[in-house]
Design a protein around this nucleic acid. Structure first.
Length: 466
RNA sequence: GCUCCCUUCGUCUAGAGGCCUAGGACACGGCCCUCUCAAGGCUGUAACACCGGUUCGAAUCCGGUAGGGAGCGCCA
């Protein structure tokens, strides 16, 4: 790509290590990554592990592994360090503490002693009254004495951001265009939890700013949260990044992607044997249109990424389309890659023969059985094909087999003369008898790969009268 | 309830007032190739949510309706 086409941006991916990498998150990570790389900018990985209960090291490690499997690398991150270290929010407490006291000093934040139960009740009442559930402002104007009284009762305060009244928050969304919100629609919100840890709105915003992120790309579900983050940064006089919100990735029925839609995590697709380049090609085209339609190698995706063609509407994930990119990807595998992907000691001839008949490594198993194992029982339609051919046909086939000494071309020629059958009538019964299936790789090379005794036994079986 | 977002073939999408009797891809059907199915090549069916307006002209602009989604959390 040409560097002058766009100014270098600093993008980031900021996952929470509370589970495995979800397809939707992987997609926004990829979009950010491609954008950064295309622009010649930087890509940062930050771990948002402020939720101590749910965050786990094993999830963090798995996350890094999944991102690497997808071909991503980062210029700054928890494992590689960087100028804005640390890249784990759990380790950034001191940084947040300074900002909290700035906010308290300037009167933009105040301690809130309301309990979770009180807040829950308040929201319920507001909802019932047909009003938006917003913080009522109970602790907003507490006197020094009132605070001391609550502290004395052993109440631990959270810290709330005081939203200015009558303000308009306007920003340019990279995907949706100009967005305008009224501060009066937003209640005071918590920026530090009772246990002293930083809340998402706060740490996510200040870290993006402090780390020099210039372009935040995230899911649409964050669009209406953006004004809160903009207000925090403004109160702190910190530079705000540009935000862009892409349409969500949903299941085939339009509902948020979940377990009942099948595989939803990157790890699951990897375990099933999908190639990362296949997943990449699929994700590249969901909610985004690049400047080429054809299959792309991972190395060229950044160059063909077009941030101005990011989609606003939710995109449905359709596994059939992923299967297509998987086929395209398998077709391009080298012989060695193919063998490694199949994970078995297959002969090169076998691997090439089944290449176009396997989508996932497990699809090779039946063909291995065809070549050197036992055939499973026939299905109904296969049985009909055998029955329609009749015992006479297989008796003739057996004779032709013996006469041709493994030369399939000669075998079919002899058989054609003996039975006057040709085309599908000739080939299909042979295929079914020999492989147990009505479809598959070319028959001649397949026959060559199986022991003569095995092939003969399979024909013999149908040559006998029942 | 309030605020915000979204709506082109079954699916992913192109389309930024005339190039659109709406293009491509997946899926599906047909044909060709191969004495067979698959693979491969070609081809077909199929969409502007709805109603008004602006305009000589609207998928594209405006308003409304309907439907879907998100946020309003001491979860991110």
């Amino acid at each position: 790509m040409l560097p002058h086409e766009s100014t270098p941006i600093v993008a980031r991916f900021a996952p929470s290590p509370t589970g495995s990498l979800h397809l939707g998150n992987a997609r926004t990570a990829l979009f950010s990554y491609w954008w950064a790389r295309k622009s010649g900018g930087r890509f940062i990985l930050r771990i948002e592990d402020t939720d101590q209960e749910r965050s786990q090291i094993k999830f963090r490690d798995a996350l890094l592994a999944d991102l690497a499997w997808l071909g991503m690398d980062w210029d700054e991150g928890p494992d590689v360090g960087g100028p804005s270290a640390p890249y784990s929010q759990a380790e950034r407490g001191a940084f947040y503490a300074g900002l909290y006291s700035d906010l308290e000093r300037s009167g933009r934040a105040y301690p809130c002693y309301c309990t979770a139960e009180e807040l829950e009740l308040s929201r319920k009442l507001q909802r019932m009254a047909g009003k938006p559930p917003r913080y009522a402002g109970t602790c907003r104007a507490l006197s020094q004495a009132e605070r001391a009284e609550r502290e004395a009762r052993g109440l631990r305060p959270s810290l709330r951001f005081q939203v200015a009244s009558g303000a308009a928050i306007v920003f340019e969304d990279a995907v949706h265009g100009t967005q305008r919100f009224a501060s009066d629609d937003i209640g005071d919100f918590i920026i530090r939890r009772e246990d002293g840890t930083a809340a998402f709105f706060f740490c996510n915003a200040v870290d993006d700013s402090a780390m020099g992120v210039t372009q935040v790309l995230r899911g649409d579900d964050h669009l209406t949260n953006t004004p809160r983050q903009l207000m925090i940064l403004e109160a702190l006089a910190m530079r705000a990044p540009a935000y862009g919100h892409v349409g969500l990735l949903v299941g085939a029925d339009g509902a948020p992607l979940s377990k009942r839609h099948g595989s939803t995590s990157v790890a699951e697709f990897r375990q099933r044997g999908f190639l990362s380049v296949a997943l990449l090609n699929q994700l590249f085209r969901l909610g985004h249109t690049g400047d080429v339609e054809a299959w792309l190698p991972a190395s060229q995706m950044a160059a063909h990424f077009r941030p101005e063609h990011l989609g606003r509407a939710p995109a449905r994930f359709d596994e059939a389309q992923l299967v297509h990119w998987q086929k395209e990807s398998v077709a391009r595998l080298s012989a060695e890659e193919m063998k490694e992907w199949l994970g078995a000691h297959d002969s090169p001839d076998f691997v090439e023969l089944i290449r176009h008949n396997v989508v996932l490594p497990t699809d090779a198993t039946p063909w291995r059985e065809v070549v050197s194992g036992e055939l499973p029982p026939l299905g109904d339609s296969e049985r009909h094909l055998i029955g329609a051919a009749g015992h006479e046909f297989f008796r003739a086939a057996l004779g032709a087999f013996d006469e041709s000494h493994g030369d399939f071309k000669l075998l079919t020629k002899l058989l054609k003369d003996k039975t006057t059958r040709k085309g599908a009538e000739l080939f299909m019964p042979l295929r079914v008898a020999l492989t147990g299936q009505a479809h598959g790789p070319e028959l001649a090379p397949l026959l060559k790969l199986m022991p003569a005794a095995t092939a003969r036994r399979r024909l013999e079986r149908y040559a006998q009268n029942p």
